[in-house]
């Protein structure tokens, strides 16, 4: 029996490796782009808030609403609804790369809220001290808010990454592949429990590794 399992896995290993690679590719690239969009968005949400260093309630409300709307979409629906936009950006609506667009759009507002929460935890006294020293808004963002919130932002990014791995399992719907797709096609449709269990194990390992790395980095940056 175990022999059978191993033979089976051996035959399927190219598929498993490919799916793992696709999942990692989708996740890493999406987290990267989501952070590029989400971190500035989160920063703006904080500094334009009432009483903060660049108060602008209108802008704050508009951005806040956009973030809320995007966050209310179930990922599956967002992925399908974004089809035309995806085509505009990457030239196609199917495939692994095409999945990165909706993943990014789904994760960016998530990142923005996490960054917002992290930055709001920065001791206001420190911001005020920087103002008293004559720091500009940009200097405060770059030299105070972001560095002070770094451990918290790293942990937030870890959460984002793991959430995106979860979303990416739905990528099969638009031909994005990945471990989730593999589990559905083999495990669910062909009742191949070996593949099902294996993909789950691989996902668990990936999540564990990411969480541990996140904790490690956060601890490294935390000087408290």
């Amino acid at each position: 029996m175990p022999n059978d399992v191993f033979t089976h896995l051996a035959t399927l290993s190219p598929e498993l490796i490919k799916a793992t690679w696709e999942t990692l590719y989708m996740t890493v690239v999406s987290v990267l782009f989501a952070s590029l969009l989400g971190i500035p968005l989160g920063v703006i949400l904080v500094v334009t808030d009432k009483g903060h260093i660049k108060e602008s309630l209108k802008l704050n409300q508009i951005l806040g609403s956009i973030v809320n709307v995007l966050r209310s979409f179930p990922f599956l629906i967002l992925m399908l609804a974004l089809g035309p936009f995806t085509r505009l950006v990457v030239g196609t609506t199917i495939g692994t790369t095409a999945t990165i667009v909706p993943l990014t759009i789904a994760a960016a507002p998530f990142v923005a809220r996490l960054v917002e929460t992290s930055l709001k935890e920065v001791n206001w006294g420190v911001v005020e001290a920087s103002l008293a020293m004559g720091a500009s808004t940009w200097q405060i963002i770059r030299k105070v808010l972001l560095p002070e919130a770094m451990p918290s932002i790293i942990l937030g990014t870890t959460i984002t990454t793991i959430t995106i791995i979860g979303y990416s399992t739905m990528a099969g719907v638009i031909g994005g592949g990945g471990l989730g797709d593999l589990a559905v096609r083999y495990g669910h449709m062909r009742f191949d429990y070996v593949v099902m269990v294996t993909t789950v194990i691989i996902l668990v390992v990936i999540v564990q590794v990411i969480q541990s790395l996140g904790n490690l980095f956060a601890a490294k940056f935390n000087k408290n």
Partner: peptide
Amino acid sequence: HFNLLSSR
């Protein structure tokens, strides 16, 4: 409360 940067 001193208000030092904890990351520095």
